[in-house]
């Protein structure tokens, strides 16, 4: 089996307008089908990195998605390959109704109407929001908003999901439901989070980002056992800590 690189980032630099560097030479490869957690303190550059995956931000260095360099001539197609889920679902759900939001991606991909409708129904079913299409986004609970936001990218049928803090602001039940949902997704996932329980539970591989640099990259279990590494980067070991069951070597 020839494994394909889903995401390949080489020596990526990005500076804000004020000259401060958010990314200072990030290099990272993720294979197709891998599920990777991206952790690190606030301001480490996690969100900035995710925004590079579909060319919204353009730094110095190269970013390849499924072998294609971006930004290329095929920006819209690349964007459809990477489903970027923002931290605040209120940023992502910008349409008056749930249907309009979930239909937005397929519509801009130029799909015919019946296909758009099929995708919307399918994506809503995926996140367990069947029958929500006429609902107004501002009437949804926080957990429903998060799921609707995920549906709004699933409808593009992306190969890669880039999630920014998917569990933030959720109550325990909504959080549990979301974790179970993420667990069964087939896509390649890169997930920026502070939720170390989430990391321990579903991500076999973990990347620690601090001050714009990858400071550690390896099996989640190994890195979580390295207390001094976690402390050095303001991270906490999930507690109570149970060894993972998915048999990472």
């Amino acid at each position: 089996m020839v494994a394909m690189k889903a995401i390949e980032i080489t020596d990526l630099y990005y500076a804000y307008h004020n000259g401060r560097y958010a990314l200072r030479g990030v290099t990272l490869s993720i294979m197709a089908g891998e599920k990777v957690a991206l952790v690190g303190p606030n301001g480490a550059g996690k969100s900035t990195l995710l925004l590079h995956l579909n060319g919204i931000l353009r730094g110095r260095g190269t970013v390849r998605i499924l072998g294609e360099e971006i930004p290329g001539h095929n920006l819209p197609r690349i964007r459809a390959q990477v489903g970027l889920v923002f931290q605040d679902p209120d940023d992502q759900l910008f349409s008056p109704s749930v249907f309009d939001d979930v239909a937005f991606g397929p519509l801009y991909a130029g799909l015919p109407e019946h296909e758009v409708r099929r995708r919307v129904a399918w994506a809503l079913a995926q996140v367990g929001l069947e029958g929500y299409s006429e609902r107004l986004s501002h009437h949804l609970s926080q957990g429903e908003k998060k799921r609707a936001a995920i549906a709004s990218v699933l409808s593009m049928e992306p190969a890669i999901l880039a999630l920014d803090e998917p569990t933030s602001g959720l109550d325990p039940r909504a959080r549990r439901r979301l974790i179970e949902f993420l667990r069964q997704l087939p896509q390649t996932i890169l997930c920026a989070t502070h939720d170390m329980h989430l990391v321990a539970e579903i991500f076999p591989r973990m990347v620690i980002l601090d001050e714009g640099l990858v400071v550690a990259d390896g099996p989640t279990q190994e890195l979580l056992d390295n207390t001094s590494l976690l402390e050095a980067h303001g991270l906490e070991r999930p507690w109570p800590y149970k060894p993972q069951e998915h048999g990472t070597p």
């Binding site: 925004l51 579909n54 919204i56 819209p76 964007r79 459809a80 990477v82 970027l84 923002f86 605040d88 209120d90 940023d91 992502q92 910008f94 239909a103 937005f104 991606g105 519509l107 801009y108 991909a109 109407e113 758009v116 409708r117 709004s152 990218v153 593009m156």
Partner: peptide, 23 residues
């Protein structure tokens, strides 16, 4: 700031400045 994030979220889903709606 909100409008910038919303704009990014639109771009992420293929927005190109055209307005498209279903019939």
């Amino acid at each position: 700031e909100r409008s910038e994030r919303v704009y990014a979220a639109m771009l992420a889903r293929g927005y190109d400045g055209q307005i498209r709606t279903l019939n």
